[in-house]
Simulated assay, not measured.
Amino acid sequence: MDNNIQRPLSFGKILDQTFRIIRGYFKPIFLIVFYIMIPVLALQAIILAVTGHKMLIGDDSIQNIWSATATELDMYADYNPIRDFGYFLSMAPIFFATPLIVGAISHVVKRARAGEPAEAVEMIKLTFPRYWPLLGSTLLFGIIAFSIVFASIFAGAFLVAFLAIESAYVIAILLALLMIVGGFIGYGLLFTRWILYLPATLFEKVAPGLGRSWRLTKRQTWKFFGIYVILTILSSIIIGALNFLPALFLGTSIIGNLWTNFVSLISSIILAVAWAIMYFDASLRQDAADIQDLVDTYNT
C-alpha cells in the first residue's frame, strides 16, 4: 500500500481502499474466516442434526415439494417447534465467532495500511486478548439496538392500528409509509454513530466502545451511512446469488444451512474491512482536529 493510504479519505476513496485491501490481502482474510468457522460449522451441524434437520435434502427443497402429494404438503406446512428452535440455536455460535472474525480482519487492515504482511493465525492470536470486551460490546450493542427498534415499532404499530380502528385508513397508511422511510433513515443514522464500536474496543482498549464510536463518527455520519448502505446492498446481492440454487435444492437441510451461513460470513468480509478503514480514517481525522484545537488554544 502506498503512503497516501494514511491520509484522510473521501467517500469514494474509502470504497476504493476497501476493495484494494480485500484484493491484496484476500488470502489471510479468507483464512481467518475459514479457520474460525470450522468449529462453528461443526457445532451448528450437531445442533441441527439433534433437532431433526435432514443432512442433505430438506423437506422444503424444490424437488421434494414438486413431487409431494397434497397430504405431504400439509405435513411440510406443520409447525415443528423443535426444528425451528434448533435453527435459531444454531445461530448462537456465529454470534460468539463474529467479534473474533471482525477483530482479526481489523488487524489485517491495520497491517495493510502500513504496507506490512499479515498472517491469518497471527491476526487471530492478536485479537484473543480483547475477545471478551469485544463480545460484551457486541452483546450490549445488540440489546440496545433491539430495544430501540422493538419499542419504536411497537409504538408505531399501536398508533397505526388506533387510526385504522377509527376509520382513518388513509392517514394510517400514510403514517405507516412515513414511519418505514423515517425508520430506515433514523435507525441507519443512529446505528452508524455506533458502527465503529468493535475497532474502537479492539485498538483503544475501551469497552463497550459505543461512546468512542459516537465521537469518531461526528460530522461523518451521512458519509459512513452511505458507505454502509452501498456495501450492504452489494453483500446482499452476493449472498443472494450464491444462495439461490442451494436454497432451492437443499432447503433447510444441514448442508443447506451451513452453506448459507458460510456464504453470509464470507460476504460480510466487505463490511468488516470497511468498518476498520472507516475507524482508522475517523481516528486520523479526529487526531488532526485535536492537534488543531491544541494549536488554536495555544495561539489564543
Results as ranks from 00 to 15, higher is better:
residue 69 T to V: 11
residue 153 I to G: 06
residue 51 T to W: 00
residue 297 T to P: 07
residue 273 V to D: 05
residue 119 E to D: 15
residue 236 S to K: 01
residue 263 V to K: 01
residue 96 F to A: 13
residue 124 I to Q: 04
residue 269 I to E: 05
residue 288 A to P: 04
residue 91 M to I: 02
residue 26 F to Q: 00
residue 81 P to T: 12
residue 20 R to Y: 02
residue 243 N to P: 03
residue 202 L to S: 12
residue 140 L to P: 08
residue 131 Y to S: 11
residue 225 F to Y: 15
residue 197 Y to T: 09
residue 8 P to R: 01
residue 288 A to V: 05
residue 176 A to M: 06
residue 7 R to C: 02
residue 113 R to L: 15
residue 191 F to A: 04
residue 22 I to L: 15
residue 281 D to V: 10
residue 86 G to Y: 01
residue 259 W to Q: 04
residue 123 M to E: 15
residue 236 S to R: 00
residue 71 T to V: 11
residue 192 T to E: 02
residue 164 A to S: 14
residue 270 I to M: 08
residue 221 T to Y: 03
residue 212 R to T: 15
residue 90 S to L: 02
residue 136 G to Y: 06
residue 215 R to V: 13
residue 190 L to P: 11
residue 214 W to N: 00
residue 69 T to C: 09
residue 63 Q to A: 07
residue 275 W to F: 12
residue 284 L to C: 15
residue 3 N to S: 13
residue 248 L to Y: 00
residue 228 Y to S: 13
residue 255 I to H: 02
residue 239 I to Q: 00
residue 206 V to Q: 14
residue 31 L to T: 01
residue 239 I to K: 00
residue 106 S to R: 08
residue 167 S to W: 06
residue 113 R to P: 06
residue 163 L to W: 14
residue 170 V to C: 09
residue 27 K to W: 05
residue 182 G to Q: 07
residue 164 A to K: 10
residue 16 D to W: 12
residue 163 L to V: 09
residue 3 N to T: 12
residue 144 I to E: 00
residue 119 E to T: 14
residue 255 I to Y: 01
residue 109 V to K: 00
residue 103 G to E: 13
residue 146 F to H: 06
residue 243 N to D: 02
residue 107 H to M: 07
residue 130 R to K: 14
residue 134 L to I: 12
residue 248 L to N: 01
residue 261 N to T: 02
residue 96 F to C: 13
residue 274 A to F: 08
residue 28 P to S: 04
residue 136 G to N: 11
residue 296 D to A: 11
residue 151 A to R: 08
residue 219 R to Y: 05
residue 117 P to C: 15
residue 283 S to F: 05
residue 274 A to S: 13
residue 40 V to Y: 02
residue 1 M to Y: 09
residue 143 I to D: 02
residue 166 E to Y: 13
residue 15 L to W: 08
residue 66 W to T: 07
residue 278 M to W: 03
residue 277 I to R: 08
residue 167 S to T: 10
residue 85 F to C: 03
residue 119 E to V: 14
residue 26 F to G: 00
residue 220 Q to A: 09
residue 177 L to A: 05
residue 34 F to W: 08
residue 8 P to H: 02
residue 122 E to D: 14
residue 12 G to R: 01
residue 287 D to I: 10
residue 210 L to C: 06
residue 164 A to T: 12
residue 60 D to M: 02
residue 174 L to M: 09
residue 63 Q to P: 04
residue 63 Q to K: 06
residue 275 W to S: 11
residue 207 A to L: 13
residue 222 W to P: 10
residue 215 R to A: 14
residue 100 L to V: 04
residue 161 A to M: 12
residue 156 G to E: 08
residue 124 I to P: 04
residue 43 L to W: 11
residue 204 E to W: 11
residue 126 L to C: 03
residue 185 I to W: 03
residue 15 L to G: 08
residue 175 L to V: 03
residue 91 M to F: 02
residue 121 V to K: 03
residue 95 F to D: 06
residue 262 F to D: 10
residue 217 T to A: 14
residue 57 I to E: 03
residue 32 I to S: 11
residue 53 H to V: 03
residue 125 K to E: 05
residue 83 R to P: 03
residue 41 L to S: 14
residue 260 T to K: 00
residue 245 L to W: 07
residue 112 A to M: 04
residue 7 R to N: 07
residue 128 F to I: 15
residue 123 M to R: 07
residue 136 G to I: 10
residue 212 R to Y: 15
residue 245 L to T: 10
residue 23 R to N: 04
residue 251 G to R: 00
residue 45 A to S: 15
residue 251 G to I: 01
